[in-house]
């Protein structure tokens, strides 16, 4: 496939996700209501418990990361779910495209929506609770957001893989998986408080390191050495592994007939 054709195929999924998002009334809830409720709830709890500004920033970073990763990963999952819900899965897999086009196109829209949510929540956090997202500067923030979006990519591609393996019944993974990952990665706490076997799992999640690195800029000593490097290596590794798993799942769906069952 030429580069032009690659970009056109990627843009097909990006445009479709944008079109669907623009017609989805629940988008307001996804983008505004739940993320804002989350930040306000956590911020007020911090105020009630009289937490220090650093501790408030610590838990707000976790809450904002949760919304950012959720929104970004949902877009990629939607790229498959729209076709599952409308029973049109076979049409896109009949076309001469790879799963990379689907994931990349949807992920680009996911990044866009995640940036909107992050900006909104960071502004709210700053206005209501004095949280300064830019405290450490633009580069650490950009690295943190990259970590969130790369984690969202691999989580969502695993969700797509599960849908291709188990059908529509796996769709709840689209919403459940991010909660699971964020709980392990230390959403409101340091991973040091996790039981040893769970901490080992947490150490395998890239977001754990990006949260650690970003929180370090807000006055918390890092738990890990070279968190950005380790987080980036893990993130890239998971992107490759999850892509491979999705390709294998689509092949398995072609073999088992699930691809057709999802279209009937």
């Amino acid at each position: 496939m030429s580069w032009r054709a690659e970009l056109v195929a990627i843009s097909a999924f990006a445009r479709r996700n944008l079109q669907m998002a623009s017609r989805n009334v629940f988008l307001v809830f996804e983008l505004l209501f739940w993320p804002v409720v989350g930040v306000v709830g956590i911020g007020l709890m911090a105020r009630f418990l009289q937490l220090s500004p650093e501790a408030t920033s610590f838990i707000l970073i976790g809450q904002i990361a949760f919304s950012t990763v959720s929104i970004c990963q949902l877009d990629v999952a939607y790229a498959v779910l729209y076709d599952v819900w409308s029973k049109s899965v076979k049409h896109q897999f009949l076309a001469p495209i790879g799963v990379r086009h689907l994931t990349a196109g949807a992920w680009l829209v996911g990044i866009l929506r995640a940036l909107v949510v992050f900006t909104l929540l960071a502004a709210l956090g700053w206005w209501a609770f004095g949280f300064d997202a830019l405290h450490a500067g633009v580069v650490p923030l950009a690295v943190f957001l990259m970590g969130c979006c790369l984690t969202a990519w691999s989580v969502s591609v695993i969700v797509c893989t599960l849908i291709m393996l188990f059908g529509a019944k796996a769709e709840t993974a689209a919403w459940a998986s991010v909660n699971f990952v964020l709980t392990l990665a230390g959403i409101y706490y340091s991973v040091a408080v996790l039981p040893t076997p769970v901490a080992a799992l947490a150490a395998a999640i890239p977001l754990t390191y990006f949260l650690d690195a970003y929180r370090a800029y807000h006055g918390f000593p890092p738990e890990f050495a070279r968190p950005i490097l380790v987080g980036s290596v893990l993130a890239v590794l998971y992107v490759v592994l999850s892509h491979w798993a999705f390709v294998a799942a689509v092949r398995s769906a072609r073999r088992s007939g699930l691809l057709l069952k999802l279209s009937e």
Partner: peptide, 20 residues
């Protein structure tokens, strides 16, 4: 069956792009 909220030109454009 196609994605419910899209209009005919959008559906054709989506699949057209998948074919380059």
């Amino acid at each position: 069956s196609f994605v419910w909220a899209l209009k005919p030109p959008e559906i054709l454009a989506f699949y057209g792009r998948l074919y380059g």
